[in-house]
């Protein structure tokens, strides 16, 4: 184990290289640019490729090529750039290509600003591009997890032959914390389906086109079956002081770090509060959520977006208990006090 103090944006690249990723294609955008900087620094000397692409559109298609060729490959961007990548992500999902996309979310819509937001939730978690597809979405809340979940992303991508997002906000990308780096993985899994410019792979085809409706429906059904397995097997969530909790705060990314402090403060005051942090946003951690709903008086979802997360929570809870929303937008981060006061207000109401 090697311990280093570094930015989330740098940790995700070093983790990726330890996970066997040897190709990075991306276009700069704040607050994700340090990912490109680190990849430019380390990919070539670790035996990989780094290209600053001409656009996010080109970048995701270079990723498509590298994934077709069997490489562990990544790209990274933020809001506007992710919007541009969506067509390519849909093609990757359709062609079942494993790849990792890091989204360091900034304020929107439009050019918005570069402060942290969580407003890419829908465009990432819901697929974003055209067609009936899903991507696996991991939501780190620390620099250590930028490394760990970044590495896991490559495993899941290969396991399910599917794009995997690492979705987080400008704060987690920009902040520095100590990280313990593991040893590199031994070797990446063999993939017999890729094109390598060899005789054995010269019968392989990477495509998403199926002209015949029956064929395309079968392909879609196969994808849906895969997503069902992902939903069953890959849900991840962190529960913090939930054992006897009557009030559950829900949030991911930077918000969960703040919620943790809020929970501690509430507990000191004798309020039985706990936190549920989705680590996977797809699959959504429905199991923990339904379990906690059995004993909680209410949920309070805290997010830096316009209720994109709370919609999903409400869909799971189906009105069994009240699910409230406290949110900030535009790059403002909810403070400990704001959330604390909101909980107090809701307790008086209920």
């Amino acid at each position: 184990m090697a311990k280093q103090f570094l930015k989330g944006n740098e940790a995700v690249v070093k983790g990726a290289i330890l996970a066997g990723c040897r190709a990075y294609y991306g276009y700069p955008i704040t607050p994700a640019s340090e990912i490109a900087h680190a990849a430019a620094m380390y990919m070539p000397i670790c035996g990989g490729t780094f290209i600053q692409a001409e656009s996010e559109v080109a970048a995701i298609n270079m990723v498509y090529g590298a994934a077709s060729a069997g490489e562990r490959v990544m790209t990274a961007s933020s809001g506007p750039g992710i919007s541009l990548k969506q067509e390519g992500v849909s093609y990757c999902a359709g062609s079942e290509l494993p790849c990792v996309i890091v989204d360091i979310v900034r304020g929107g819509p439009g050019l918005g600003n570069i402060a942290p937001e969580q407003s890419d939730y829908n465009q990432v978690v819901k697929g974003g591009g055209h067609g009936n597809y899903k991507v696996i979405v991991l939501a780190p809340n620390s620099v250590q997890e930028m490394c760990d979940l970044g590495m896991l992303a490559f495993d899941l991508a290969d396991k399910y032959r599917n794009p995997v997002y690492v979705l987080t906000d400008g704060f987690i990308g920009q902040m520095m914390e100590p990280v313990e780096f593991p040893e590199p993985i031994e070797k990446i899994p063999e993939k017999s389906w890729v094109v390598k410019g060899t005789d054995e792979t010269s019968n392989n085809l990477i495509t998403s086109i199926e002209l015949d409706p029956d064929d395309l429906e079968r392909h879609n059904q196969k994808l849906q079956q895969k997503y069902a397995i992902v939903k069953e097997q890959e849900q991840r969530a962190e529960e913090y002081r939930t054992d006897d909790a009557e009030i559950i705060l829900i949030g991911y990314g930077i918000v969960s770090r703040i919620l943790q402090t809020v929970v501690d403060k509430l507990r000191e005051e004798g309020v039985k509060a706990g936190m549920l942090r989705p680590i996977t946003l797809f699959p959504f951690p429905t199991k923990s959520m339904t379990k906690l709903a059995k004993s909680a008086k209410f949920f309070l979802t805290v997010e830096m977006s316009n209720g994109q997360l709370v919609d999903d929570v409400r869909l799971i809870i189906e009105g069994k208990i009240p699910v409230y929303l406290y949110n900030r937008m535009g790059g403002n981060v909810p403070s400990i006090k704001e959330i604390h006061d909101e909980v107090m207000k809701l307790m008086r109401l209920s």
Partner: peptide, 25 residues
């Protein structure tokens, strides 16, 4: 041959990703 079907207009970008991975191809 090995075949990769790609999005409208993006073949040179995809080609880049492939060729960089397999320079001998």
């Amino acid at each position: 041959t090995g075949n990769v079907q790609v999005a409208h207009g993006r073949a040179p970008a995809v080609a880049t990703g492939i060729k960089r991975a397999h320079p001998h191809s």
